[in-house]
Design a protein around this nucleic acid. Structure first.
Length: 473
RNA sequence: GUCCCCAUCGUCUAGCCUGGCCUAGGACGCCGGCCUUUCAAGCCGGCAACACGGGUUCGAAUCCCGUUGGGGACACCA
């Protein structure tokens, strides 16, 4: 058995988008499952559109989702001589020819053909000119087969037959000496011994153009697999107007990479009714057979649900760690009062089932930072009233009389007071909630007290009592 | 225009290959209820789909043909 070698080959013309991540993920999963090799290759032969910044963005994105590569990143612009020499081999073998048609002429002819309702293909006028030493600018074209069929046995779509009459004589070397995509991929996939070329569905019709090149070059043809596209809610190809498409945008919005990976894996692949997969489970269970053949609509709500799921079931220590940069950004860290890690973990446990993202979590966690309460005006006006002041005072006195802090003891004391006053739980709980957190919604009151600690619970009660007493009826 | 791919709840999907177990299952979302000190979470329940038309068959979501619809490709982009 030859070892599995797969690759992810993005072009660095922008950030790493969701569709790219899924393509990379499926390749990566297969490589890890088969104990094969996952290669990162940057297809930057388009000088005008490629940027180093994009390469960095791709690398940053892959790292964030934890898709590590075993070889690369290779850059095609560093392999120019290789493509040129293989192109020359084709020329010498009579499988390629010089084309002296000008780019704008080709463009004009293409347009003309289109208006006549014809195929906008190259008409092959230089094919039999036999130019050996072009005097001016010339591009090298591959002599594509014109008869017969090219059969692609796709890992995902099955057997697909293309009539070779639809094939075009593709340019493989531009007049500036740079190879074109369809040629450099073939040379690289062959030379890098790629066993499975797995890419987006949009490359499906590139495959019958590439297969004859493998053959002309004398290389074995790899297996192909074409992943269905990811669409936006309007069923059009996923793009900016559907919301965020950059992976890093998801990082910034407070998503966990595990959640994104889980979501993307399930988008277009399934394993019975299972929805939640750990990374090792994905590696173990992934297979081509259950990859969907049809396009999938990206559903942000389901991703959000998954993220919430990971937030509340993941190890709180890890969640706390990833939360830190978000807390810093929100200015919640006072450098003179470093926050103990274990308190942060406690805080995460306190709020995690209410937050759907880390950004969300910051909001939930805000009331527990700082000595004093910051009230939401509406909440304070409604609950910190002179009418509520006497019972708040009684509660404060009783809490003060309890020496240490124990959740059970304080809860018991609280309920006894409710009983004695003939109140309902909620009648006291809401004012106290506002007194402690400044808000009308919070986790369980006694859990809140525990995280706040005895001193802050008492001081915040005191502070809120003062406001209640001073408020006008 | 030509070629290629695709078609199950609003969305992701199971089932399709190897027809009967499908009165079509799960998940997200939505709606209702329970729980409850608030908000969540959790639990229970509900709404909701085999694109259409022909075949084949005792029987079709499943096999075949056609139609329609959606997507992709047709660059000296990748």
């Amino acid at each position: 058995m030859t070892p599995v070698r797969v690759r992810f080959a993005p072009s660095p013309t922008g950030f790493l988008h969701i569709g790219g991540v899924r393509t990379a993920l499926f390749n990566w999963l297969y490589a890890r499952q088969q104990q094969g090799v996952f290669i990162l290759r940057i297809e930057d032969t388009d000088q005008s559109r490629s940027t180093d910044q994009s390469i960095q963005a791709i690398i940053e994105g892959l790292r964030w989702v934890g898709l590590d590569w075993d070889e690369g990143p290779y850059r095609q612009t560093e392999r120019m001589d290789i493509y040129r020499s293989h192109a020359m081999n084709l020329l010498e073998g009579g499988q390629a020819y010089w084309c002296v048609c000008k780019a704008d002429e080709l463009e004009a002819r293409r347009k003309e053909a289109e208006t006549k309702g014809l195929s906008p293909r190259y008409d092959g006028r230089c094919r039999n000119l036999g130019i050996t030493q072009p005097s001016g600018e010339a591009a090298l074209r591959f002599k594509a087969p014109q008869t017969g069929q090219t059969v692609v046995d796709d890992l995902i779509k099955g057997r697909i037959v293309f009539d070779n009459t639809v094939l075009d004589d593709l340019i493989i070397l531009r007049s500036n000496g740079y190879p074109t995509y369809n040629f450099s991929v073939v040379v690289d996939d062959a030379l890098m011994h790629i066993t499975h070329v797995v890419r987006g569905d949009d490359h499906l019709t590139n495959t019958p153009r590439q297969v004859p090149m493998f053959q002309a070059l004398g290389f074995p043809v790899p297996q192909f697999g074409h992943l269905p596209m990811i669409l936006g809610s309007d069923k059009a190809r996923l793009s900016k107007r559907h919301g965020a498409t950059s992976v890093i945008a998801y990082k910034d919005m407070g998503y966990l990479p595990e959640a994104l990976v889980n979501y993307l894996a399930r988008l277009g692949w399934s394993y019975g009714d299972q929805e939640l997969f750990s990374r090792s489970e994905l590696i173990e269970k992934f297979n081509w057979k259950n990859v969907q053949t049809s396009a999938a609509v990206f559903n942000p709500e389901k991703l959000l649900w998954l993220n919430a799921e990971y937030l509340k079931t993941g190890p709180p220590e890890a969640v706390a760690r990833t939360l830190v940069p978000f807390l810093e950004q929100a200015g919640l860290f006072d450098p003179s009062h470093p926050v103990p890690q274990e308190w942060l973990v406690q805080l995460v446990v306190l709020v995690r089932e209410r937050a759907k993202t880390l950004v969300d979590m910051v909001e939930w966690v805000k009331p527990y930072f700082g000595e004093s309460v910051v009230w939401e005006e509406e909440a304070a006006t409604k609950f910190l009233t002179p009418a509520n002041a006497p019972v708040l005072r009684k509660l404060l006195e009783r809490f003060v009389s309890l020496s240490g802090f124990s959740k059970q003891a304080w809860e018991e004391q609280f309920k006894r007071l409710v009983d004695e006053e003939g109140m309902k739980m909620g009648q006291l709980a809401q004012p106290v909630r506002v007194a402690l957190t400044g808000r009308t919604a919070s986790p369980g009151l006694f859990d809140v007290m525990e995280v706040l600690g005895r001193e802050r619970t008492l001081s915040r009660l005191q502070q809120s009592l003062a406001r209640a007493e001073a408020a006008h009826a």
